[in-house]
Design a protein around this nucleic acid. Structure first.
Lengths: 197, 197
DNA sequence: AACGCTGCTTGACACAGTGTCAATTGACGA
DNA sequence: TCGTCAATTGACACTGTGTCAAGCAGCGTT
């Protein structure tokens, strides 16, 4: 529990984040992380019980580095639903590229590890809450298109914003982040905002 | 090469498809498939060089069973872009649930196996071509909203229809297949079809 | 009846990557 | 000098894929 101990833990997290970013979250093994940190593979296990636990800690670590809370502030401060919707999409569209490596690693670990699946689900539920907040405000403004309930609109928005969509558009189709944000915003507005009819 | 050989191959494919459907494409091992088929694990390797090769063959096998071509006929026969768009989404929305197990297995294998990634990409490119055909027709009808090029609209439609979106809406959000088709159709129309302006 | 071919079985093994265990070292403080 | 604690080292278990070699059973030839 000495400061040396904490320091090593932080160094592991730093190299984990760095390597995952570098390699797009693929093929980074415990031994690679150890080597990068300059310690033995077993030493990593003295700080994190499993690969999944390390990945989960890495996402939290990265959120702190990126100062997630202050990034969320603008959308939280929005006064209208329309504004909140746009600001939330903007936040999310600029957040994904920054966390992509770590997120992808967790996404892959999910396939074989239940704990990773749970951790990922938790994050996605938090994101869903963000969608819900925007939709609810839109609804109470009277701007939600009539064919939607707040519930179904939340589901739909949440799904649209999922990482694989961002991944496909930017990695496969070559879209830029602003293009992605632009498209998402346009589609969301057209889909969820009702006219005065 | 005798008929016995072919028969065993078919039996393997049948049990592979059955098991993958049953288990949602997860956790089905070569040994499980062998046991289900009633042969030894090594016998499977006499017919398929690798797990990935078996999975790829299973998708083809399933397409034959489902008669993919005749399922595609209606959308191919459409005369307007708007009609083709709707019929293609309808086809795809009812096709995914039928192939989900096998598709998911290939999707998972993709993470560790380049050959699986290539096979999956091929299928997705075929799907993308279907999207392109609908968008092109829409475009030549003069019904494509002005902010889109055929290229970007194809990318966007293709992404919307990706399996993870179906997966999220039906598995996580509990939507039914008709609900999914309905939503996709509505969003696609609102997004891609331009008014008379 | 002996022959070979074919499809399959059996069992052993290599390989990766995760995770565990036990013995040891080296530094630091009381 | 002793105890503690982080870290090292090396061996090992486990899982699932894929490989290899020997053997066997049935079947048709000649």
């Amino acid at each position: 529990m000495s400061s040396k101990n904490i320091e090593t833990r932080t160094r592991i997290l730093d190299s984990t984040v760095r390597m995952l970013e570098e390699h797009g979250g693929r093929g980074v093994r415990m031994g690679d992380i150890a080597k990068e940190t300059g310690i033995s593979r077993q030493a990593v296990y003295l700080h994190f019980a499993s690969r999944t636990e390390l990945l989960v800690a890495a996402t939290r670590h990265l959120d702190e580095i990126l100062d997630l809370d202050s990034r969320l502030a603008p959308s939280r401060a929005a006064t209208t639903g329309i504004e909140r919707l746009a600001l939330y999409i903007d936040h999310w569209g600029r957040y994904i590229p920054d966390i992509y490596g770590v997120a992808k690693a967790l996404l892959l670990a999910r396939d074989t590890d239940d704990a990773a699946a749970t951790a990922w689900n938790d994050r996605m539920q938090a994101m869903r809450d963000g969608c819900r907040a925007a939709i609810e405000l839109l609804h109470s403004d009277g701007d939600l298109a009539t064919e939607w309930t707040p519930q179904t609109a939340t589901d739909a928005l949440w799904t649209m914003l999922l990482v694989p969509n961002w991944e496909n558009l930017t990695q496969e189709c070559g879209w830029s982040t602003p293009q992605y944000v632009d498209w998402m915003t346009t589609v969301a507005k057209r889909t969820f905002i009702g006219g005065p009819d």
